[in-house]
């Protein structure tokens, strides 16, 4: 049996989550192939080939894959799916878009955001915003799944897997890519940062969100995150929302500032190694998931913390 990993990349760099997907794939103790769909980046192929545990990199190159659409990615995977019993990817907006389409074309159910892989096609995944864990067993002939990246350690580098090119199916003619807006930031990427500082609605305004959190983030080399309440209130942009419907993070240090701790939010950060919470409300649920809680006015405590580091 062989396992296919759908790799995510931005045209220049392979996503670090591919290394986590490779670790997850090792469970089956079988050959692991990594699919790179793009417009011909040798560097990305080489990065995938260097991951320990990868037997082969499958490179699919076409102009229309420069910004890969779910329709094209799905058709590509289905064109080679006969060779695979497991098709997996790290859970992200890219894989969430493409893999359900693959599963439907293969007439199988898909298992989203798997936390743990057990034997006999059995998986653990969360429902109800992480409040409940389910163990489910698939009876489908092909397993299509996304894995919860932070639950799997990154496979190490130093391999030199074979890279082969395959024919790419014709472009899907009913969808066109037009443009993208990438958030410009000098800060590290939220989903791979070692330190994440998140702000909640208590920050009060977009200006204060930036004024209070930025100096601390700069000092710690941290990424900034936000709760859904803060995003909905317009204090922070959508793409830095941490939680069930946003980004899931698992940094070394997570500092929650003025965050109440709704389950929607804690789902996205509770795998962090150390959680610090600063909140004026001693009963805020965030303190139940914090290793170190400080009940204080954030507008005094955060500048004091920044000054003291």
């Amino acid at each position: 049996m062989t396992i296919l990993i759908l790799a995510e990349h931005d045209g220049n760099q392979l996503s670090p989550s591919v290394q986590q997907a490779v670790t997850a794939a090792q469970f089956w103790n079988s050959s692991v192939h990594v699919l790179i769909a793009g417009n011909g980046s040798d560097a990305i192929n080489q990065q995938a080939a260097s991951i320990q545990g990868v037997e082969r990199v499958i490179s699919s190159t076409a102009k229309h894959l420069e910004h890969p659409l779910a329709e094209d990615v799905a058709n590509l995977i289905v064109s080679i799916s006969d060779d695979y019993e497991v098709i997996l990817a790290a859970h992200s907006s890219f894989s969430r878009n493409a893999l359900p389409r693959v599963a439907a074309l293969l007439d199988v159910e898909m298992i989203s955001d798997v936390l743990n892989i057990n034997g006999n096609n059995t998986y653990v995944r969360a429902i109800y915003a992480g409040n409940i864990l389910t163990t489910i067993q698939s009876t489908d002939t092909v397993q299509v799944l996304t894995i919860h990246g932070s639950k799997f350690t990154a496979a190490s580098l130093g391999n030199n897997a074979k890279i082969i090119s395959i024919e790419t199916p014709a472009a899907y003619d009913k969808a066109r890519w037009l443009s993208e807006v990438r958030s410009q930031s000098d800060r590290p990427a939220l989903n791979s940062a070692k330190v994440v500082i998140s702000g909640g609605r208590s920050l009060g305004s977009a200006e204060r969100f930036e004024q209070v959190l930025s100096p601390l983030a700069s000092k710690l080399g941290a990424a900034l995150g936000a709760t859904r309440a803060a995003v909905d209130a317009g204090f922070a942009s959508n793409d830095i929302q941490v939680g069930q419907t946003g980004v899931v993070v698992a940094p070394e240090l997570y500092i929650a500032i003025g965050v109440s701790g709704a389950v929607q939010h804690t789902y996205g950060m509770k795998d962090s190694r150390i959680v610090v919470a600063i909140n004026q409300d001693p009963d805020a649920p965030i303190f139940q998931v914090a290793d170190y809680g400080l009940v204080a006015d954030l507008f005094e405590a955060v500048p004091a913390l920044t000054a003291a580091i």
Partner: peptide
């Protein structure tokens, strides 16, 4: 085609300190 075998509460994080 997906059979539910078990449901559990997730392990809580260890209680921290103030």
């Amino acid at each position: 085609s997906l059979k539910l075998l078990q449901v559990n509460e997730p392990a809580a994080r260890k209680v921290g300190i103030k």
